[in-house]
Design a protein around this nucleic acid. Structure first.
Lengths: 167, 167
DNA sequence: TTGGATAGTCAACAAGGCTGACATAAAACG
DNA sequence: CGTTTTATGTCAGCCTTGTTGACTATCCAA
């Protein structure tokens, strides 16, 4: 469909449809590995991936608002609310009414929320660490570079640059 | 939890928890981008990601059996069957009863199945191509190296080495 | 030839997406 | 001050795609 061989210029063999197909499948299989370990832990606790995502980003940005989380996760408020509700009801997350703007809820992990988040994060880090170590620092730089180029621009904005808690 | 600074040896700064966290979030955001374009197309046709995966791997290995597809996709046969059923009923996939073993169904894309598969694949390749081009060949090598190291060993086996059709 | 393994199908349930409608409270604005 | 907008929550209902369990058809080996 779109292989290109530009005469005179470098052949760009890494852009052939076949190479792209391998990249696509690599993403698919790797993502499965990436989520496999947390999935097992979540299952034991009766949670799902959606809970993991919420715990992760609340841990990363304590005090973040529901709206902020929504735009990071890219789901509807109804969908997030269901997950957040169980996490709050079961005491893993605390939602404090904003002091400046009382419409907002600022989200924090409780002690037990932190325990689970750490368990999940450490499982995921362990796999990532093994992969990084095996691949080496140069490959890791390339990995990050390609991933960032693959994000939607809006997500690239969220990446590494999150809104902070209540001032 | 596990940052390491080994005195005398290189500092391994790419293995700090903070670097690992960035890698984890990069995977999350990039995977969203990776699936965004096909998702839009699938939506127009009334299909989901599961249909895309089936079309992709049947395209890649024409004549593959349901069982083979099962082990690649890592879902239950009941889950795959539902998706396969709609694709067969709507004429995108053909299932031929095996000649040697009549229990087996060998799967092929029909003409219209091929059309949709190509549309999906081209959309995904376009994003991947842009990311590859932006990142450059060396980064792409690193990307692939880390992804392969992140897969479960069994998936690494499926990757680049698929079973063939009915001999 | 029969019993166990293998391939696939059907039914029913659960998680977690989605839309739409609606409620409330607070902020912002004219 | 009154109106509008914003932030959040909730109810109801739908869809996709995962799951388990039960079942049928076929093959193969004892």
């Amino acid at each position: 469909m779109s292989d290109q061989l530009s005469p005179g210029r470098p052949p760009l063999l890494f852009l052939t449809d076949e190479e792209l197909r391998k990249g696509i499948e690599a993403m698919f299989f790797a993502y499965r590995g990436f989520t496999a370990d947390p999935d097992r832990i979540l299952d034991q606790h009766g949670y799902g991936r959606a809970h993991h995502r919420a715990l992760h980003f609340i841990h990363r940005s304590p005090g973040t608002t529901v709206n902020n989380l929504l735009s990071i996760l890219g789901v509807t408020k109804q969908s997030l609310n269901r997950v957040l509700r169980t996490l709050i009801d079961e005491g893993l997350v605390e939602a404090r009414v904003g002091t400046r703007d009382k419409r907002e809820r600022h989200l924090f992990l409780t002690a037990s929320g932190n325990v689970l988040e750490q368990e999940l994060a450490e499982a995921q880090r362990t796999r990532m660490r093994a992969a990084y170590r095996e691949a080496g620092p140069e490959a890791v730089r390339g990995f990050r570079t390609v991933l960032e180029a693959m994000m939607d621009p809006e997500m690239r904005h969220h990446f590494g640059l999150l809104k902070d808690p209540e001032s």
